[in-house]
């Protein structure tokens, strides 16, 4: 039996009919074509599917879509403001904080969740903040340098 789901993604309200078993990541990727969000494990262990839900980072493979009813969700597609990249994105580019890029959306969203909690996180907070995201390519340290730069205020967010 299909169920109604209402949620807001990157500022856009959606109304959908879904099977109750549907996971949030499936709604994003398969129903709405927001393929920026990835799936690396499907078991809550890799963080590639991280999105920000009501201000906090969560793994979209570990949330039933119906549990997100009424929620505000931000995915990597909602990070830039129009043509202007988000400070995290600019810093990731400058510091080479990605290689294959498959973990990058999840990393960025974990960092976004972190900045929501701590606008100027310390190095330790950054390390902890991305600990839920596996990156097989970069060894994390370039990501940490990028977020440190954002934390220092090297990149200003346009209002």
């Amino acid at each position: 039996m299909l169920k109604e789901l209402k949620l807001t993604i990157n500022g856009q309200p959606y109304e959908l009919s879904i099977h109750p078993r549907t996971l949030l990541v499936e709604v994003l990727r398969e129903q709405l074509g927001l393929t920026g969000t990835k799936r690396g494990c499907n078991e809550g262990a890799c963080g590639a599917c991280t999105v920000v839900m009501n201000g906090k980072s969560v793994k979209s493979c570990s949330v039933l879509a119906l549990s997100a009813n009424g929620a505000e969700i931000t995915t990597v597609e909602g990070l830039a403001k129009g043509a202007e990249l988000h400070p995290l994105q600019k810093a990731f580019l400058d510091y080479g904080a990605y290689q294959c890029g498959f973990c990058t959306a999840g990393m960025l969203m974990s960092c976004k969740g972190l900045l929501n909690m701590f606008p100027n996180p310390t190095s330790d907070q950054i390390r902890d903040g991305i600990d839920g995201n596996i990156c097989r390519c970069t060894g994390y340290n370039s990501i940490i340098r990028a977020v440190e730069a954002v934390s220092r205020g090297d990149y200003k967010e346009t209002k």
Binding site: T35, G36, T37, V76, E77, Q89, L93, Y98, G101, T104
Partner: peptide, 10 residues
């Protein structure tokens, strides 16, 4: 390939 990877468009 930087921008497409940090924006999720790749």
């Amino acid at each position: 390939d930087g921008t497409e990877k940090v924006t999720g468009t790749a």
